[in-house]
Amino acid sequence: MRALKRALLNISYNRQVFFLNGLILAAALMLLGFAALALFNVHFLTASWEEVNNVVLYLDNTLEEGEQKKLAALLKNWPEVAEVRLVNPETAIKEFTQLSAEAKELMSGLPATIFPPALDLTIHNMAQDDFKSFILKLGSTPGLIYLDYGQNIYEEVGKISGFLRVVALVAALIIMLLIMVIAAFTIKVALYQRRREIEVEWLVGATPAFIKMPFLWEGGIMGLFSGLVAAAVFAAFSLVAPIGEEILATFLPAIPIKLFDARLCPLLLLAGPFLALPGTFWGLRRVLK
């Protein structure tokens, strides 16, 4: 408690420096909040893009109708599969020609068995890894000639979302490092300002822990202060976020971007001290050596 009192006393002596550094840290935390928001957006957007709920299994023409039905019944029992529809070549042609006049014209004169029989599967939502295993399992289906689940688009979207996630994560990590560096620098400045006090404490028998403790408290308090400021500013941002979202929606109607997420407020509040304290340790370790 004595160290805390000394830390508070030191803060009151250097109020301006404390507030200035706290606000710089808060600004860095805000940047971290926006990086996290970008990460959330990427996650939500790509999660919906990557969602596959339809897989078509094109079967060998030589497969008897009875065998096709047996296969459909078998797949219906798989836990991943919600529904199975057997599409024979005639139904396929019928459905295709109903699409447009051009399609009808295109098919005229062609044999009725131009399309192979197919099984149209509706599947439950599942994680990416589970989906990959499911596709591998389907690959061993007897009589299968081709499997279609929009793999090209699926892989492209996967690549883009992976890249965006890496960019947002790298940005978040850089900002976190920046916050720790700012905290370390602030403590170094405080150590320099109070070098005479530290010297006297050391000369009268203070242990390194006694000297360090007020600085650690100071770092923690500054982190908490900056976290509070960042969380408060972010919460205030929720008032204007819907307007921004509406404007963005007029330019990018297909991409629903969120400009505010309430979960970020407590995260920022905690991130302040959690990032400032390691930075303070770092600053103290180097200087008191």
Binding site: V200, V204, G205, A206, T207, P208
Partner: peptide, 16 residues
């Protein structure tokens, strides 16, 4: 520090 707690020192420049 534990040795120094047994020693009182008056410095030439006081160190106040």
């Amino acid at each position: 520090p534990y040795l120094r707690r047994n020693i009182g020192m008056v410095f030439q420049d006081f160190k106040l």
